[in-house]
């Protein structure tokens, strides 16, 4: 049975979600709503490139917080989620959250009505998260500027798991769900 992406995708507000995989940053950029606070520890060498972000999210809507370690980062995230002035908070996680930390983030999000999204390394999920996604880029033989990705929902507290191939349309700023190769209209029927 195929599950509709709309049942899970605009991420449920006032909850904290998780995403892992190589395309986690793209997932976060697509999922973001309104002004975004992006919390990333200051020692990490990687940066978001605002020009690369532009097709997804206007760079003027982004605020960066650079805490020195994860403890500070979580405190900032809790404060921002609880306040609710920013509708979307992205937290880059570098060590596994324990139950207490995950629960506190979840409670803060509920209190403030903001949506939180943790970018986690694979296998560092917290039990308190509402959903956990895995986003991986995939090769698109047909289009050059493709952003074809495979999104899997691997944990869902209030719904079912599912997997979709999606592509971001840069012109219209919309997400297209792409049918798997065999089910596309006009394509040859899979063998067998």
């Amino acid at each position: 049975m195929r599950v509709d992406l709309n049942s899970a995708f605009p991420l449920r507000p006032a909850r904290v979600h998780e995403v892992c995989g190589a395309a986690a940053v793209s997932f976060a950029a697509i999922a973001a709503r309104g002004t975004v606070l992006w919390i990333r520890e200051s020692w990490l060498p990687e940066t978001l490139h605002p020009l690369g972000l532009m097709p997804f999210l206007a760079p003027s809507r982004l605020l960066l917080a650079r805490p020195k370690d994860q403890t500070d980062g979580l405190a900032v995230a809790e404060e921002a989620l609880k306040d609710g002035a920013l509708p979307f908070v992205v937290i880059e996680i570098t060590r596994p959250l324990d139950l207490r930390e995950g629960r506190r983030l979840q409670l803060a999000a509920k209190a403030g009505g903001a949506t939180g999204l943790c970018l986690i390394p694979e296998g560092m999920g917290s039990n308190a998260s509402e959903t956990r996604w895995k986003a991986t880029p995939s090769f698109d033989p047909h289009r050059e500027d493709s952003t074809l990705m495979r999104w899997e929902i691997i944990k869902n507290k209030s719904g079912t798991n599912g997997a979709w191939n999606v592509r971001w349309d840069q012109e219209t700023h919309r997400l297209h769900v792409v049918s798997p190769a065999g089910e596309r209209p006009g394509s040859a029927r899979p063998p067998g």
Binding site: V25, S26, A29, P45, E46, T47, L48, H49, P50, L51, G52, L53, M54, F56, A58, P59, S60, D145
Partner: peptide, 14 residues
Amino acid sequence: NGWSAPRPRPLRHF
């Protein structure tokens, strides 16, 4: 405002 990217740029940059 006033961002412009004449050519595509990567999202992550290291």
